[in-house]
Design a protein around this nucleic acid. Structure first.
Lengths: 201, 201
DNA sequence: GTCTATATGGTGATAGAC
DNA sequence: GTCTATCACCATATAGAC
């Protein structure tokens, strides 16, 4: 495993982050040592500190990138149907469900970090991640408010419904495996029905 | 903190488990040392090994007791309305929601362990906890099947709906705090509406 | 850019005195 | 039942050679 000399700065950085993501997701931040990450990359432990100031920053960066990716996936899904100015709230809800499931399954390890490692963040990093999470939640709540206002949803508390729907959707990553009983299209369909029902559509 | 001598076997055992539960829930199993647990109890570290064979068994016991408590809370809720032989599936769903929220909020730390520390269990202990979880999930799925058969629910996949509802309900422990904007009765009411909607009632 | 070596301190678990 | 002392090992992070 331990390479001796040989400089590959262009690829070592991404490898460090990829190995850390995989190991943190599998065993948990606190259970993974910098030595394990170094061994997975194929460098000695001291080398890691050329790519991150410390272990905490490595975790925070991975979580930030995950949240930014999830938010970007939602934002980018808006641009697809060009000139689709006034999309129906129910169609927007379906799209949110599909995009959330898609970006979650595309990065299951990131989802694990985002929901399990909050307590291992420093206060400053925690505040940063919490802000990004809130931003994402607010995108869904805006849909529910519009659906409520348009009379196509019946919701007693949009904030609670938002948290309930996101918890419901995120739980998928705990059990879904490609190649199982359901394909992704079917999965999205079923969760669209569950979500529409929950908001009284 | 460190007591010197003095035997209190009858109370030290529960204190060890209580301190471990609190610390594991707050900081995570891997991040908590046996020395921290001992300090919280007020004994020296060697003393802990009179109450548990090792750290792993301490975790597994706490998780097992939590799951057994949740299952018992559901089972005991059946006996209350004596002679209530043929309860409506929708009423049973409401009762499941209320009991789940009640037992979750009564033991938030246990819920944290049950959902965050599965990966820190040995294979044998993991299998034991997974069996208890499945047993609890099956109690909900039986309700959904009956509701489907009775024509009072419309569900395309009862297993998925079960997992979705439990994820939705369990998410509550991530944000609910007594004394906040909502009291527990209101909370249960809102989640009953969400659950009924999700299953097409 | 990567290595080796090291500083400093924490880890789970056990043995044996009291 | 609890303590003290200890074993063998692993942790994060840094300094300086190449």
């Amino acid at each position: 495993m331990a390479r001796t000399q040989g400089s590959r700065a262009d690829i070592t950085g991404p490898l460090v982050r990829q190995a850390a993501l995989r190991l943190f997701a599998r065993d948990g931040y606190a259970a993974v040592s910098m030595r394990q990450i170094a061994a997975a990359v194929g460098v000695q432990v001291g080398t890691l500190y050329g790519y991150t100031p410390d272990k905490q920053a490595l975790l925070a960066d991975l979580m930030r990138e995950h949240m930014e990716g999830v938010i970007a996936a939602w934002r980018d899904s808006l641009g697809d149907g060009s000139g689709n100015g006034a999309e129906d709230p129910l169609a927007r809800l379906d799209r949110f469900v599909a995009v959330h499931i898609g970006s979650s399954l595309a990065n299951v390890e990131g989802v694990f970090l985002a929901y399990m490692e909050l307590r291992n963040l420093s206060p400053e990093n925690f505040a940063m991640i919490a802000r990004l999470r809130r931003q994402y939640e607010d995108a869904l709540e805006a849909i529910l408010r519009d659906g409520q206002a348009a009379g196509v949803m019946r919701i007693s508390d949009t904030r609670l419904a938002t948290l309930a729907l996101i918890a419901m959707l995120t739980g998928i990553t705990n059990w879904y495996r490609d190649g199982g009983r359901l394909d992704r299209g079917h999965l999205v369909q079923i969760y669209c029905d569950l979500a529409r029902g929950a908001v009284g559509a």
